[in-house]
Design a protein around this nucleic acid. Structure first.
Length: 849
RNA sequence: GCCGAGGUGGCGGAAUUGGUAUACGCGCACGACUCAAAAUCGUGUGGGCAUGUCCCUUGAGGGUUCAAGUCCCUCCCUCGGCACCA
């Protein structure tokens, strides 16, 4: 018997599939479109990572399953090869990214072809193709035209190694998402996209989409909605007399708090180092130099220092006080870097009795603490005298931090009120404003790098002086628009020029700033001399719309053809990594919603969400540890495919653990799958076409059960149990020696999504002409799914005592008689009347004695 | 610290959602084939001992129930995400 030669079969079928266009639906006319999308890879490293392979295989199995169910499955693939990751790799190995892109492209596409995925190769795309990034730039221009792109100077994240700014989403634990270098703060003027305008919708829509729960939670937390109040505190200089000061003060600081119910406990105020009040000289801060020194050192701190060292520091502003509007008390003001400038108003009211951070700070600086909320279950007597407690007080119970809600004390006329209710009553009392804050910040899209789409904007100095720009009128009032013009759409793309020394310079600007011929431009407004923007846009903008381009990647007139969009969107199934929870998966939703609002993207959907169904796959580890080059435990997929074949590799990846959970890859494990596939081959070869004439009823019954099980398991991405069910079925085939052709064909169809080559080869060898991957998915007869008999479990006092084979649908009485006929049961129950008999139909009977 | 997922044989992992715990696979042991080995095939494989239609066993302890890996309470550990967001 000839052994199965997987490598020649793989080669053969790849060629046949290509010429027969097995995986190419007609994008403009299909009747049952099914868009099966997977996150395209960064071609950044030595080759395709096994993690990508894992994700693609899981997604492809789902696509193949849907194709066999009769859908016109569209499963495109491309390369996210523009951007910092590809550029960093080019720097590392000392090539130019333009050259490296071509090398990576060949390597990746070759690898992607041998893994046996049903990709629609005609629609492949690369984000560095000018025909692609032309439209990435076009999206930037639309953002600008609709007031969603703006420039602003503010402290931003700067990676000293990548020599570029980063978005908040790209800073992980204070470190650069790409290279792990500690990120520092820098005050720079940059381009931002107004994703915050969409915060509420991005949050609300989460309720309408079917996504892996952990990703939704991550997005919810990242958006970070909180309800609270804005409350104004008057600022006075203590030179002035007490009674005149409050009324006469022209200075005010507004704070944001989610706990206005604790206002009476606000014993001091804290400003962020960037707070504008600190620059106000007429205020008469007496220790101005000390304050300035503190502010300077705080601004220099890196993100990591802030995170690592949570010891609170701060300086009091001498000579000034704030007035607590609830009780008109004068309270000290501090500057401290535990208050962030980018959130709320950059100023807080500090309530050390009821907030952990304020409590830490108060302890450190020995500040008084006042308790204003008592837990509901405590028995406070009202009214309580207005007491103030020092942290050194020997009565620690009273000063203990309490962050919960409860009943108000020490709060004047609000004493005794429930804190939930008091929140809004106190807000009203001090003329505060109820408001909502989001943790989400605007998306910083500028990058001071070479390998990316140049931001298609032009700056004209003379127009800036005259206050001219082509920003929409409603956006002109905001800062950073004067002098800026979008490159006219007919002039797109702004091609990335070849720059020999493409390495980042670290001078707050892109290497393009040294290419004079690139940045010299005409002003689209006054036709005078102007300068192009030399920064490029964030890679995540490239990937924020690729799924729209796939359906018509060669379209020269429009970014995406409206008729095809209507047919193919929203995407039916999106599979990818959870590491993109607050990166790609957030940006991509934002861009879709924004384009929809601009009336540029229109597909049938209530919310405009492009991915109603998303599943995150798990993480693959090797021998119990995370894969890393330094540990030398990185799986090279090519080697495994060469040794075991793509089918065995794919099937093993899916068998080793639940797809959505991820799991542990062990070399030994793949042998089990190899044996399984070999046995299938031998089984068919051994039959030599002599299939059984008559169906064995027990095999037939189990086959129907397996069809149901595998269908449901694939639908829910439980591939590991689907494969296990197929193994059990096949074990029965082997035991029986032979099965009918129909039964056998059903089995081959069921393994087709997992082992596309072997199944196709077997399919052809039993005389089938059409590709198995376009053959109908087996159906089952619901009546045959369960066997006619079942093992009736007999328990005595809940303990398993015997098992008897019984007819399905047995009545309780009959079950009882049957159970008692078993000698063991008979002996145990004999002579006693059971107190209770529990009968679970088709399952068990339990005698309680 | 907060949020999420999880803890089941020597290992990866199953368990119809409260109803035979350890499916399937790996590994291991023994046997067959072989001069031998690999491959392949067969048998066995949670632990215990008094070898039984016995007892124990799903991170630890308690509870609910005829019945708990599954539900409730307390605690421990591992992995992932967020992290001074007021």
């Amino acid at each position: 018997m000839k052994r199965y030669n997987f490598s020649s079969a793989e080669k053969k079928w790849n060629a046949i599939w290509k010429t027969k266009r097995v995986y190419e639906p007609d994008l403009s006319s299909t009747k049952k479109p099914f868009y099966n999308l997977m996150m395209f890879p960064y071609p950044s490293a030595e080759g395709l990572h096994v993690g990508n392979m894992y994700a693609f295989t899981g997604s492809d199995i789902y696509g193949r399953f849907k194709r066999m169910q009769g859908y016109d499955v569209f499963e495109p693939m491309g390369l996210d090869g523009f951007g910092i990751h590809s550029e960093n790799y080019a720097i590392k190995i000392g090539t130019h990214p333009v050259k490296q892109a071509k090398i990576s492209e060949r390597r990746f596409y070759k690898q992607l072809e041998i893994v046996g995925n049903g990709f629609a190769w005609n629609e492949r795309l690369e984000t560095y193709d000018p025909e692609y990034y032309k439209w990435t730039q076009w999206i930037f221009v639309q953002m600008w035209k609709h007031g969603l792109a703006y420039r602003k100077k503010q402290p931003v994240n700067w990676c000293p190694s990548c020599k570029t700014v980063l978005a908040d989403e790209q800073v992980i634990d204070g470190k650069c998402e790409r290279c792990g270098t500690i990120v520092v703060k820098k005050e720079l003027e940059q381009w931002f996209f107004k994703i915050t305008k969409y915060a509420e919708r991005l949050l609300q829509n989460l309720e309408t989409i079917d996504w892996s729960e952990k990703v939704k939670i991550a997005q919810r937390n990242w958006i970070g909605k909180s309800e609270g109040a804005l409350i104004k505190f008057k600022i006075i200089n203590d030179k002035f007399q007490i009674n005149s000061k409050a009324q006469n003060s022209k200075h005010e600081v507004e704070v944001f708090t989610t706990r206005p119910d604790t206002l009476f406990g606000a014993t001091y105020m804290v400003l962020a180092p960037e707070h504008p009040l600190l620059e106000n000289k007429e205020l008469g801060i007496r220790n101005y130099d000390d304050v300035a020194k503190y502010v300077a050192s705080a601004k220099k701190k890196s993100e990591e220092e802030r995170i690592e060292n949570k010891e609170k520091t701060g300086v009091e502003l001498k000579g000034v006080k704030a007035i607590n509007p609830a009780n008109n008390e004068e309270i000290p003001i501090f500057v401290a870097d535990y208050v962030l400038s980018g959130y709320g108003t950059g100023a807080i009211m500090a309530v050390p009795g009821h907030d952990l951070r304020d409590s830490d700070f108060a302890r450190k600086l020995d500040l008084p603490v006042r308790r204003v909320i008592a837990p509901r279950e405590s028995n406070f007597q009202f009214p309580i005298s207005n007491f103030q407690i020092n942290p050194n007080d020997q009565n620690p119970k009273e000063t203990e931090l309490y962050e919960g809600d409860g009943i108000l004390i020490n709060s004047g006329k609000f004493d005794g009120i429930d804190s939930e209710k008091a929140k809004w009553e106190i807000t009203k009392f001090v003329e505060g404003k109820k408001t909502t804050q989001y943790r989400l910040r605007d998306w910083l899209v500028s990058r001071q790098r070479y390998w990316g789409p140049p931001i298609p904007m032009v700056y004209c100095e003379s127009c800036a002086k005259a206050g001219r720009s082509d920003a929409p009128s409603f956006a002109k009032a905001t800062e950073g628009t004067a002098g800026w013009y979008a490159v006219p759409e007919k002039n797109l793309p702004v091609k990335l020029p070849f720059v020999k020394d493409f390495r980042p310079k670290g001078k707050d600007e892109s290497p393009l700033a040294s290419a004079k011929s690139f940045f010299e431009a005409r002003c689209p407004g006054c036709r005078g001399k102007a300068r192009r923007e030399t920064d490029v846009s964030d890679t995540f903008l490239d990937s924020a719309w690729y799924y729209l381009r796939y359906i018509d990647p060669k379209n020269k007139k429009e970014p995406f053809a409206a008729s095809r969009i209507k047919r193919w969107l929203p995407v039916n199934m999106y599979i990818g990594g959870a590491e993109h929870s607050v990166l790609h998966l957030l940006y991509v939703r934002f861009v879709a919603l924004a384009l929809r609002d601009m009336k540029l993207l229109n597909f049938p959907s209530k919310t405009g969400e492009p991915f109603p169904l998303f599943r995150a796959h798990g993480l693959l580890i090797k021998d119990g540890a995370k894969m890393s080059k330094s540990k030398g435990n990185v799986i090279n997929p090519d080697e495994y495919i060469k040794e075991f074949g793509a089918d065995a590799f794919r099937t093993y990846l899916m068998f080793l653990a639940p797809f959505e959970q991820g799991g542990d890859f062990r070399d030994q494990g793949i042998l089990g799958i190899t044996r399984f596939l070999d046995r299938i081959w031998k089984f068919q070869e051994g039959l030599k076409g002599k299939f059984a004439k008559k169906e064995s009823p027990s095999i037939e019954q189990f086959l129907h059960y397996t069809v149901k099980k595998v269908t449901e398991d694939i639908e829910s991405l439980h591939y590991n149990t689907a494969i296990s069910a197929l193994m059990i079925l096949f074990n029965k085939f082997e035991e029986a020696g032979s099965v009918t052709k129909g039964q056998y064909k059903t089995f081959v169809c069921l393994i087709a999504p997992f082992a596309p080559y072997l199944s196709e080869e077997l399919w052809g060898r039993i005389g089938e002409k059409k590709s198995i991957h376009r053959s109908p998915w087996p159906r089952y007869n619901p009546r045959l799914v369960v066997a006619e008999t079942f093992p009736l479990v007999v328990q005595i006092n809940g303990k398993h005592r015997a098992t008897v084979e019984a007819e399905r649908g047995l009545s309780e009485e009959k079950a009882r008689t049957l159970a008692l006929s078993h000698p063991m049961v008979h002996k145990a129950v004999e002579g006693k009347t059971p107190k209770r008999v529990i009968y679970v139909k088709d399952r068990l009977i339990n005698f309680v004695i």
